[in-house]
Amino acid sequence: MTATNALSPRALRRARRRQSLSRSWAAYRSQKTGMWGLVLLGAIVVLAIATPVLIDASALSVTQATGGRMAPPSAEYPLGTDETGRSVLALTLWGSRLSLVIGLTATVVAIVIGTAVGVTSGHIGGWYGWIALRLSDWFMVLPSLVVAIALLAVLGRSMATTITVIALVSWPGTTRLVRAQTLTVQSRPYLERAKALGAGHWHQMTKHILPNVLPLVLASATLLVPSAILMESSLAWLGLGDPGVVSWGSILNRASENGAVSAHAWWYLLPPGLAILLVVLAFMLCGRALEAVFNPRLRGES
């Protein structure tokens, strides 16, 4: 009897979770634009992963470049070349990896900080909760690009600082969301019961609160990634990116530094920018669809 009792609730919980997952998936699938976003995103991720197989890393080397200076598209260089004779196609494909990695990493860091602060401030409350709330409010109000530029200007340019800075300006939104959700979950009777049964803070937070806030966090994370990618590209374009790596923003930074606009080198400008646009759009479509799954009012039932 004790054995079944110990096992069955967990199995039950897992089954219930699987069920709600499949229900959410069905709700997601019913949204055409969300599915388009997912397909687009899948294609971009596959391309980014496959890039090293498709194009050798030597294509990024300035010294080994073979093409002409800002040459228009040709059979050899389908998207033309940059000012050092490198293939814009190769740059754009390789740039996808950096842009995605920075965008995703920054989002993950922001989400982890935001969730941790949100859950603890909501659960523990008191002075700590108050200060955490005020602090996230404060961060939320500050203009994020200004803060990011200022921090990068003093911290120096590297991938790590870029990620840190983007994460630093992105976490408060998650904190507020998670905090609000934590407070709702906490008022539910089963948590009262768990508390009455002597469950510790850690147990309550990880076993009861966290599983309940995670779906929401996932949806909001999907909308954080595009803004992180846009932020990264803006910073890199301003010349604040890691000088050693190729991202879409840094390609466009070189393009404008080297007069691609006045040279009418549209092939140099269009691919990286369109790539940013498509990735951001794909994430936005997915994020909106996910949001609608969790908020049926938006699902277009009238």
Binding site: V261, L269, L270, I276, L281
Partner: peptide, 17 residues
């Protein structure tokens, strides 16, 4: 949504172009 997804600096460069 498409315009929202476009990076400002890039859109500006294209507009100039």
């Amino acid at each position: 949504l498409v315009l929202y997804s476009a990076p400002t600096f890039w859109l500006g460069m294209i507009v100039i172009l």
